[in-house]
Every structure is written in structure tokens, then in C-alpha cells.
């Protein structure tokens, strides 16, 4: 197990000076990923916040090799990089050891990129796909994705006389990826560095594809005070809105059980995107969201052998 002090002494592979928002959860997740291995890396990112903010020509914040291709194809792109590595290794043209990480937001992963992701995982490329899930198309200004929670006020599900925000339950992408029966699938929040570090290291260590889904708060999209990013992540775990678990070679394991499962309103309250839910006529949305969280938590407990 890595020590925080040791991690802090490692050379940065994503340098400061990038243009992600103050308080953004994404660079913390990206840096933790890059710190989880000492191997040479090729990182890919789908079009999105991480990509546009770290590579504004003629600058780059990446100290390792980085490729951006398009929005929906980071998994296919990195699968090509990995295939090239295998080919060149086989032909003796490369000596160094490399590992491969693909980053995508929820738009680039749950929605437009799911085909590319599913294909790359099914083919068994030795790569880690990390979804930084901020629950909407945040790079283009908070449009709804299939990861957006019920009731969220987004720019394409705006609250109005006839609308309480986004409708319907979130897509359970982590379970979909587990159904690919790849070596390692996990989800976690961005507050727990130990859990993040261990899961990222495990994902990079297993042979074959690994997928991580990391809830990553977005200051302008979720509308909260930027100093609360870590607190919000923690509340997502404590309310079971975003449980921390892993599926290692088919074995489901719960990584965090709150001592006392907090009500989902504790997670909703600090966020402007849910403010309208706290008027009496929208109580039913909060109730329904709580049911969604409860149902998924119960299902997870069963899958993890806790029930």
C-alpha cells in the first residue's frame, strides 16, 4: 500500500497550469491514476473537460505521451495504441514497458462512447479505462447525459412549470462493464485517496482490460462551493448514492459500508442543481431518488454476498 507522503514525492505527470476549474474533481483523479504506476504511460482522453483544458496548443500539461482523437472513440484509439505496442514488442522494435490509460467523461463513456468502450473491453486489450463521471455534459455546459440523476436541473432538462429536471434513473454503467466479464471493474468516489490508489494500481496491474467509474463533482455543473468537492464525494458514498465496490475476476466486493446510511437529501442539499427539489411539490422526486438509491444498494449487497 502506497503512503501519501511517497505519492507526493513522485514526479508529476500531469503538471499544474492546466485550465480545469478551481475545485474540479477531475485533475485529482487523473493525478492519482498517473501516480498509481511507475511504468511509462500512454494516456488517451475523449473530447471533454480533461482534454480541452490540459492540451491547449502550444502547451500541454502531460509529461507522458498523450493522444486525443475524438469524442466517442478514446477506447478504440487506445486499443490501437495497445495493439501497436504488442506488434512492435513482438518485432523487437520496442524495449520499454508501457501501460495504457483512457479517460472519458460520462458523456464520452455512457453515451456516445459506449460502443467503442464495449468493443475495446470485449477484445481484451491490456488497458485501463477511467470514466470521470460528473453526471452531465459539463464541458459544453451541463447538458443531460444518461448518467444524470433524476431531478437534476440541467440546461437540456431545465426546471420549469412543467419540469422538475432530468427524468428517469441513471444508467448503471459499472454493472454493464462487469457484465463484460473483464478482469477488473470498480467504482469509487474521488475523496478516498487510499481506495483510489489501490483500485487504480490493481486496474493497472491486472492483465487485460480494466474499467473504473469514478464520481467526480463538477463545480459549475453541480453548483456548489468549490471547496466542498471532497465533502460532496464523501456524501455520495455515505448516502450510498455512489457506492464503492469492485469486481475482481468476477468476484463482487463491497469496499465501503457506511456506519449509518445517510439519507440522499444530505448529498442533494449542498448542490444548486437540486435546489428546486426542496419545494413541497417536488418531494416525490426526492422520494423516488431515494428509492433508486435504496434499490441499487440492496441489489449491490446481494451481488457482494452481504445479503
Amino acid at each position: 500500500m502506497a503512503k501519501l507522503k511517497d505519492l507526493s514525492l513522485k514526479p508529476e505527470r500531469l503538471t499544474g497550469g492546466h485550465r480545469l476549474c478551481p475545485g474540479c474533481g477531475v485533475p485529482a483523479v487523473a493525478r492519482m491514476a498517473l501516480l498509481a504506476t511507475d511504468a511509462h504511460l500512454v494516456v488517451g482522453a475523449s473530447t471533454g473537460c480533461l482534454e480541452v483544458s490540459t492540451t491547449i496548443y502550444p502547451y500541454t500539461a502531460w509529461q507522458c505521451s498523450f493522444i486525443h482523437n475524438a469524442f466517442e472513440n478514446v477506447a478504440a484509439t487506445i486499443s490501437g495504441v495497445e495493439a501497436a505496442y504488442k506488434a512492435l514488442k513482438k518485432r523487437g522494435k520496442i524495449k520499454d514497458e508501457f501501460k495504457f490509460i483512457a479517460f472519458g467523461g460520462d458523456g464520452g463513456t455512457y453515451d456516445i462512447g459506449i460502443q467503442s468502450l464495449s468493443g475495446a473491453m470485449e477484445r481484451g486489450h491490456d488497458m485501463v479505462y477511467i470514466c470521470y463521471d460528473n453526471e452531465a455534459y459539463q464541458n459544453t455546459g451541463n447538458q443531460r447525459s444518461s448518467s444524470t440523476p433524476m431531478g437534476s436541473n440541467t440546461t437540456t432538462t431545465p426546471v420549469g412549470k412543467e419540469s422538475y429536471g432530468s427524468v428517469g434513473r441513471r444508467k448503471d454503467l459499472t454493472a454493464i462493464m462487469a457484465a463484460h466479464h473483464i478482469p477488473y471493474v470498480a467504482q469509487t468516489t474521488s475523496d478516498n485517496w487510499k481506495d483510489l490508489n489501490r483500485k487504480l494500481a490493481r486496474a493497472l496491474e491486472v492483465e487485460g482490460p480494466a474499467f473504473l467509474n469514478i464520481l467526480t463533482p463538477c463545480v459549475p455543473g453541480w453548483k456548489y462551493d468549490g471547496k466542498d468537492t471532497i465533502n460532496l464525494s464523501r456524501l455520495a458514498a455515505k448516502t450510498c448514492f455512489w457506492p464503492s465496490y469492485e469486481v475482481d475476476h468476477g468476484k463482487w466486493k463491497l469496499n465501503y459500508t457506511p456506519k449509518e446510511k445517510l439519507p440522499v437529501v444530505d448529498f442533494l442539499k449542498p448542490q444548486g442543481r437540486f435546489r428546486h427539489l426542496f419545494s413541497p411539490e417536488n418531494q416525490h422526486v426526492i422520494d423516488e431518488l431515494q428509492r433508486e438509491v435504496d434499490d441499487q444498494w440492496e441489489e449491490l449487497l446481494v451481488r457482494c454476498g452481504k445479503k
Partner: peptide, 28 residues
């Protein structure tokens, strides 16, 4: 031949993977 044959799930991914591999110095 000893090419790495990647059986992608669409032509979009065929070209995307080819971009990734050619950018990695592999004739693709």
C-alpha cells in the same frame, strides 16, 4: 504474416484504432 489483427466493432473504431496504432509508430 505476424500483424496484430484487431477485429473492431465498427468502421468508426477501425479508423480510430488505426489512428492510435499509426500514432504509436506502427504501420497500420
Amino acid at each position: 504474416v505476424d500483424s496484430e489483427l484487431v477485429l473492431v466493432e465498427s468502421e468508426h473504431s477501425a479508423m480510430s484504432a488505426t489512428v492510435g496504432s499509426q500514432a504509436s509508430g506502427a504501420r497500420s
